[in-house]
């Protein structure tokens, strides 16, 4: 019994010391996982997930604080990619954060705009140009469709307009398999 104790104790001291030493010496700074998650997120910076931007949400996923199904702009596709990356199971988009919508851009009704600059401050990607008391307009290619500018507008002059399909954005559809009921 004494031998057993001694052997175990010796192992414990050595292992404990080695592990403690290694933990300090080989501490990994930064988190490459966050980068990868952030790379999957759509970067709309819309905050629908409940975090102030895509990166904070990525951080939260990496920490295990947030679920992977809180990003409506990323849609089911995005959740699938996150599930793949993190080895988790796919979950449908959680309803409380909103629903997947067609890609849209904000359009300012320039007749109504009073030039209050509130939307400029709300836009996370500086896609709205204008100055105080001047009419504002949206640079459509820059707009991520986050809708953050819609709420602050005091005169409700901003509308989200779905992007129409053009020859350049047209895609072949997923083949629909029609199996005739041959019975």
């Amino acid at each position: 019994m004494i031998t057993a104790l001694l052997v175990m104790a010796l192992g414990a001291v050595l292992l404990g010391a080695a592990l403690g030493y290694a933990a300090v010496k080989f501490r990994v700074e930064g988190d490459p996982l966050v980068e990868k998650i952030d790379g999957i997120l759509p970067q709309t910076q819309c905050g629908q997930c409940g975090y102030p931007g895509c990166r904070p949400y990525a951080q939260a996923i990496a920490n295990g604080d947030a679920d992977i199904n809180c990003c409506p702009p990323g849609g089911e596709d995005g959740i699938r990619k996150l599930a793949d990356l993190l080895g988790r199971e796919f979950k449908p988009l959680s309803g409380e954060h909103g629903v997947e919508k067609p890609k849209s851009v904000a359009v300012i009704d320039e007749n109504v705009c009073i030039g209050c600059t509130l939307c400029l401050q709300a836009c996370p990607v500086d896609a709205i140009v204008g100055a105080a008391k001047q009419m504002h307009t949206v640079i459509a290619p820059q707009c991520t469709g986050c809708e953050l500018c819609v709420a602050p507008c005091p005169v409700d002059c901003i509308a989200m307009v779905p992007i129409a399909e053009s020859m350049d954005s047209w895609k072949w559809k997923y083949p629909v398999i029609e199996i005739r009921k041959a019975a």
């Binding site: 952030d38 997120l41 759509p42 970067q43 709309t44 910076q45 895509c54 990607v125």
Partner: peptide, 20 residues
């Protein structure tokens, strides 16, 4: 066409991230 669209989206997302 999905791959092409995805690559376009990726570019747009990178661009948005940069601006943000």
């Amino acid at each position: 066409s999905s791959i092409r669209a995805r690559e376009k989206d990726k570019l747009a997302a990178d661009h948005a991230r940069e601006r943000y």
